[in-house]
Amino acid sequence: MHLTLEFGGGLDLLCQSVKIHQVDVAPKDENAKLTMRDLLAWVRSSLIKERPEMFMKGDTVRPGVLVLVNDCDWELCGGIDMELEEKDVVVFISTLHGG
């Protein structure tokens, strides 16, 4: 499944300072849908190169990290159980830095 991932608010520093990643992520098995839970696990193991604790806490994002899917807050679309679809744009923004 092709997705666009964007990291902002300093999270880009955790993945080699690249803000926008075009990625292909396969669901766990062919019939299953890809959920945000699966995507987060994939991001953690495949994209994040350092300090994963800045991004995740437990199996979800760290409090203070905003998640937008197609410019809509993931809280409105089911959060961690939300099913992703082809060409979705997922944005992660950390608020845990000075302003």
Partner: peptide, 13 residues
Amino acid sequence: MEEGTASKRAAGR
């Protein structure tokens, strides 16, 4: 298709 997915997710709200 993208429009379809957007409306499905927001569940008609």
